[in-house]
Design a protein around this nucleic acid. Structure first.
Lengths: 291, 291
DNA sequence: CTGGATGTGAAGAAATATTTTCAAAATGGG
DNA sequence: CCCATTTTGAAAATATTTCTTCACATCCAG
């Protein structure tokens, strides 16, 4: 029984297929089609699905060298996990000259994973709703970030400013926030960033804004800032990183996608603004074109 | 309970995520990672894998509208079967409810691609050399960004400031830059960000800095800013995006990986600084701990 | 007709899930 | 910072499901 240790269930079945009896082969075939999901139900389910009796299933499990049906099932689960959890990313040898353990590669793996998982958890309805909010020219956009996420708010602000008018960056110093709140009117949008460790002031700000009829859009992490309570829409991005810090890469990606969506939706206005901006830059000669 | 009939487990979790408590969210996240395989073991296994107790698992199953844990598990199995047996699995099933043409998915595809290609073109030697430069406590770090990349410089600055002393953020207004140059001494490092459209002032700054014996590290795009001429090390990240704008996501990723590397290399110093910082935060009560 | 394979049903055993209680911990408000 | 409230986990008792095994009837191929 020891040689069988490293084998998959499918391999074991094929290896001993000739020893199997008629009903057992029938069962084996059912397990092999739609492998390995079909073997995951209860022993009764599996038996019924293949049209054999439960004792047959139990018998075969032992015949294949497992302790019993649950043992076989555990093996199947393990295989499935291994299959699903290692997608192309691991095999994809980018930066081939680097050993897998180099921080650059480890970081890349984790970020790609964050990306995949975040995307799975973010509904396009949320995304589209937020894009629609931000496209509405009657709503003023306010944006604010915490100690770390401030840079993201800043990034967002810089872009939105070009795309449309009516965008405000709330200053980092929370003492001044009441003044900003004073300027928010019902229907305005507050785009807030708050990742752990969640900042009390941001939560309060979200609360105050909500109280004034402002729609709060929150960018946070997978655990969700308490500010989510006040948020009309929340994006929960995974921020896992092999580091003492969290990764904002996925959040930035979401932000950029959102910026792209808004820009598409209001292209005519944006186009004009960008052209005007170009001219202004040319006039002040602050920037010289190279490309 | 009837409206929930057609929903996937993931959807149910997302829909009620705000109602979930801390431990439940923890559990929910574990189920969502490696979805849906992670939810297929026994209730004990699942509980242990997420670090919560079995009652919590049972409680959440009911909260989500299932009869109990086995019911939830059955739903997961059903989904898995549907997913695996149909050929949908072609396109990694992120954001599965979104058509491939949704901007969110298009953006994701492009960014993942940028990531792969950038990594292939970036040698770990460059990465390691830069990490070594930034780790040297005798060198002061100056960092500067352009109109858009300013946020990245800011992000970098915020983190480096915690990791080590001797970090300066060069103000955005280029009029004041000569003053900053005055303070740069030979052996210092200037971390500059310059993506298209390349900014004349940044190039001049890099030139001036090099003239004073400063090592310039440049983050730029795949075409390379003219400032690369003066840079000792340059990171060329792909910034392609289905948008009128470029994507900074890969650049941010590189930056974070670099920050992680530096932080690892000087952990003892960083550790002390972080603890001190915590205390200062506690004292000023600016931030309240949630996690 | 015969022997092995199979299914049925059932009973006991084992594992698993549910629920309860209660103390400890976390959270949120003042 | 403290207190009230909620959440959580451990333990245990209970309920339920699932698995194993057995006895026995049936089927089928040779």
């Amino acid at each position: 029984m020891n040689r069988e240790e490293g084998q998959t269930v499918a391999e074991r079945i094929r290896a001993r297929f000739d020893d199997l009896t008629r009903a057992e082969r029938q069962l084996a075939n059912t397990i092999l089609e739609n492998y390995p999901v079909s073997g995951l139900g209860s022993i009764t389910t599996v038996a019924e699905a293949s049209g054999v009796s439960t004792p047959t299933v139990a018998r075969m499990a032992k015949k294949l060298g497992f302790g019993g049906f649950p043992d076989l099932q555990g093996a199947l689960r393990g295989e499935l996990e291994a299959t699903i959890s290692s997608p192309i990313s691991k095999h994809d040898r980018w930066a081939e000259n680097a050993p897998d353990t180099h921080i650059l590669n480890r970081f890349a793996d984790v970020v790609m994973d964050n990306m995949r998982q975040s995307l799975r958890n973010i509904g396009t309805e949320t995304f589209d709703s937020v894009a629609r909010l931000l496209t509405d020219p009657d709503r003023t956009i306010h944006t604010v970030g915490g100690r770390i996420s401030r840079s993201l708010a800043d990034y967002f602000y810089t872009h939105m400013q070009v795309i449309r008018g009516g965008v405000t960056l709330v200053a980092p110093n929370s003492n001044t926030w009441p003044h900003y709140v004073l300027n928010m009117k019902p229907g305005d949008v507050l785009v807030a960033f708050d990742v752990r460790r969640y900042e009390h002031d941001i939560i309060r700000l979200a609360e105050m804004a909500t109280g004034r009829g402002v729609d709060v859009v929150l960018f946070t992490d997978q655990w969700g800032s308490p500010a989510a309570k006040y948020a009309k829409h929340a994006f929960r991005a995974r921020i896992e990183a092999p580091s003492a810090w969290d990764s904002s890469a996925v959040t930035l990606f979401l932000l950029e996608a959102l910026i792209a969506a808004v820009q598409n939706a209001m292209w005519s206005e944006t186009h004009t603004r960008m052209k005007d901006l170009e001219e202004l830059f040319d006039q002040t000669k602050l920037f010289r074109k190279f490309v």
